[in-house]
């Protein structure tokens, strides 16, 4: 349905990777901007806030390091690129090419993550230098599972943002919607505090939203904290399917409007 062949995918990824290497300074900076979880960890352990939660300092620092990694590889910015492309009139040429425009963005994201990988590793290295006691090596199984769930988290966020990006067909500045959605993502995903620590009245409903599955769930897998892996992955898949259906609907409506009246 998206007109994909391995050759196309390969070429697209390669070009996007070269393109991203051009922006390596920016990507390095971006990796650095993801260090908030470490600051939060510092507040938690420095004030002994985790004592009453029953999480040890080591487990907590592993959790926040994992949260950092999950965040690094699930960052999505498609709405900003799409908005820019719409503004500069680049959408029309994309639409007449025999590949879905969003696959181009998808490849950009993957390429960007590959470029980002060494920088994230360096930051992690520094983390272990300062916190040698929290060093751990997850088993291959755990590692693969967390990789999958991180990729699922990326997919969920990519789909949400793609839906928002489609709003560009109706309004000129879709990115302000994104800023609105980002607020619950920031506070409810577990990036700043593990969802476990939330008050019960929040915990009672937060698992019905996609947010805890964006950071908290993959990070718990990777850091080997207690978590039900199977049910978590199932919930992620359900969200992916749901958002994918919505995306297809919004996209077909939006591109129909685009071809009818232009932008």
């Amino acid at each position: 349905m998206f007109n994909l062949t391995p050759y196309k995918i390969g070429t697209l990824l390669k070009t996007q990777y070269s393109n991203m290497m051009e922006y390596r300074v920016e990507i390095a900076l971006w990796a650095i901007s993801g260090v908030i979880p470490f600051f939060m960890l510092n507040i938690w352990t420095n004030n002994g806030l985790n004592d009453s939660l029953g999480i040890s300092n080591i487990m907590l620092s592993r959790y926040f390091l994992s949260a950092f990694f999950v965040r690094q590889f699930s960052v999505v910015w498609v709405v900003f690129t799409f908005e820019e492309d719409a503004l500069l009139g680049r959408i029309s040429p994309y639409l007449i090419q025999p590949i879905h425009p969003f696959f181009r963005y998808f490849a950009q994201h993957i390429a960007e993550q590959i470029t980002r990988f060494p920088f994230a590793l360096i930051i992690a290295l520094f983390f272990f230098i300062f916190n040698p006691e929290s060093l751990w090596f997850p088993s291959i199984g755990i590692f693969i599972l967390s990789l999958i769930s991180t990729f699922f988290s990326f997919l969920i966020q990519f789909l949400i943002q793609s839906i928002i990006a489609c709003f560009c067909f109706w309004t000129e500045k879709a990115s302000s919607f994104e800023k609105l959605i980002f607020i619950p993502t920031l506070f409810l995903s577990g990036l700043l505090a593990p969802v476990e620590s939330f008050p019960t009245f929040v915990k009672s409903w937060v698992y019905f939203t996609p947010f805890p599955y964006l950071i908290d769930f993959p990070a718990r897998i990777l850091s080997e904290n207690n978590v039900n892996i199977f049910s978590g992955l199932c919930v992620q898949i359900i969200w992916i399917i749901l958002f994918f259906i919505i995306f297809l609907k919004v996209w077909s409506q939006g591109s129909k409007k685009f071809t009818a009246m232009g932008l």
Binding site: K14, S18, M21, E22
Partner: peptide, 10 residues
């Protein structure tokens, strides 16, 4: 041009 060029450029 190409991947090699990019890496060199890096």
């Amino acid at each position: 041009p190409g991947l090699k060029g990019t890496l060199k450029h890096f």
